[in-house]
């Protein structure tokens, strides 16, 4: 196994007291595998990804374990984490508009991790940056390397971000909604690019998205998050064919049309996700869930195994099966 996340919890201090943003999430990923994390806005997808990078906001505390290449990332010190970041694990962010430094040329930003981790000279790193830009399909890479972010379109910038992430041939790439901010036509190209390049170099990929269709197309495995909790996980085929959790079912019914408006968030289920401070001690979906009973609110539902590694967290799985 390349990555094994066990009972990961993240607590963040807020003005209303400490809040549990991620609750006992567990998942695993092998070399070259792809995992999709899906959930509506605020469900904790980004925080889970940032926990893997060791880049949670100041004051965050974690528990559980993140085993990556056999080492527990939560036990590494900052210097050890720095060596991994950008080298063994890389991340592509949601907003290509703001994720690049406006003052540095594209080439310089792509060269930076190469100089840092590979010890390349400035010139060698620059030449490599141009090659990387070519690999991600930017025409005229020499000039693009000299350009500044504001001179590129959103899609071009996102390609530059991908080139930056690919630079050191990481074993794991985390792409946090890499296409949400892009035009529909560009979205598919960027997703294909990420999938292709990942497959070529046997990189594992975690793709965060609010769109189940995107994940169905690109990921072998899926993790459905809600209110900071991993509600259901397993092979994408299994989960989509036999969704066990009421939330996953609701998601599938409310799936945005293919080619939904850019930036559109998954928000088709009646009611609102639990808000800051109001995180219940029981199932976060309680109340909004059509199958809610009194017991739902009492304790965190335990994982129920449904064959293979298909898992769902719901105390009424049987009822859900019958209702389906």
């Amino acid at each position: 196994m390349l990555l094994e996340v066990a009972e990961l919890s993240v607590d963040l201090p807020t003005s209303g007291g400490v809040r549990r943003i991620v609750r006992s999430a567990s998942f695993a990923l092998d070399h070259g595998q792809t995992l999709g994390i899906v959930g509506e806005s605020g469900s904790g997808k980004t925080m889970t990804a940032l926990a893997l990078m060791g880049l949670l906001p100041d004051g965050a505390t974690t528990s559980g374990a993140i085993l990556f290449e056999g080492r527990d990332l939560l036990k590494l010190n900052e210097a050890q984490m720095r060596d991994l970041r950008g080298d063994r694990v890389a991340m592509i962010f949601q907003e290509p508009m703001t994720a690049l430094n406006p003052l540095h040329s594209i080439g310089r930003q792509i060269a930076e991790p190469l100089i840092l981790h590979r010890g390349l000279s400035n010139a060698a790193a620059h030449a490599e940056a141009v090659r990387l830009l070519e690999r991600v399909g930017l025409p005229d890479p020499v000039r693009r390397a000299r350009a500044y972010p504001h001179q590129l379109s959103g899609g071009q910038r996102q390609r530059a971000m991908i080139a930056m992430a690919l630079g050191c041939a990481p074993r794991l790439i985390i792409a946090d909604e890499p296409t949400t901010a892009l035009d529909v036509t560009v979205q598919a190209q960027i997703l294909d690019l990420i999938a292709d390049l990942g497959a070529q170099s046997d990189m594992a990929l975690i793709l965060v998205s609010h769109d189940l269709a995107v994940i169905a197309q690109n990921c072998e495995r899926v993790l459905v998050m809600y209110g900071g909790m991993a509600m259901e996980s397993g092979r994408t085929d299994d989960v989509l064919a036999r969704p066990a959790h009421p939330y996953t079912k609701a998601l599938l019914q409310a799936r945005p049309r293919v080619g939904a408006r850019r930036g559109e968030r998954l928000q088709a289920i009646a009611g609102a996700a639990p808000s800051a401070g109001a995180m219940p001690k029981g199932c976060p979906f309680a109340g909004r869930c059509p199958l809610t009973i009194a017991a739902c609110g009492e304790a965190l539902p335990a994982p129920v195994m449904l064959g293979g590694d298909h898992m769902a967290r719901c105390i009424r799985i049987d009822a859900a099966e019958r209702a389906a």
């Binding site: 991994l84 950008g86 703001t98 430094n101 930076e112 991790p113 840092l116 971000m161």
Partner: peptide, 13 residues
């Protein structure tokens, strides 16, 4: 800003 997070994600101190 987001690019600060990007810089940290590259492994910069």
């Amino acid at each position: 800003e987001d690019f600060i997070r990007t810089a940290r994600a590259k492994g910069l101190s």
